[in-house]
């Protein structure tokens, strides 16, 4: 199991357009990626490719989230997704 922490950089948090872009990227990652707020139990983590999960997560600008994935390519996929979260997607 690989794990990464990331700080949400988008000014509107993980809603709206940033959530769409991130869900789409997570869905295309090739491995199953979960997302949870930092400090939340791992079993409460949600499917990162689900825009509805991302919206109910309630991550705001500056929130720290934990991404997890398993299997081949997990590390590379997580690195890519972390970089995305740490970019202001509202400005893209």
């Amino acid at each position: 199991m690989s794990e990464r922490k990331a700080t949400v950089a988008s000014s509107s948090g993980l809603h709206a357009r940033p959530a769409s872009l991130f869900a789409e990227a997570a869905g295309a990652a090739g491995v199953e990626v979960t997302i949870a707020m930092d400090g939340a139990p791992a079993e409460d983590a949600m499917d990162a490719s689900s825009i509805l999960s991302l919206m109910t997560l309630g991550a705001e600008h500056g929130s720290v989230v934990v991404l997890r994935a398993e299997g081949d390519g997990a590390d590379a996929a997580l690195d890519k997704l972390v970089a995305m979260l740490e970019t202001d997607l509202d400005a893209v």
Partner: peptide, 18 residues
């Protein structure tokens, strides 16, 4: 466009379908 793209993602959303 942004609204339609987000709605399109919702249509086959894994959380909803699960």
């Amino acid at each position: 466009k942004a609204v339609l793209e987000a709605t399109a993602l919702m249509a086959a959303d894994p959380m909803l379908l699960k």
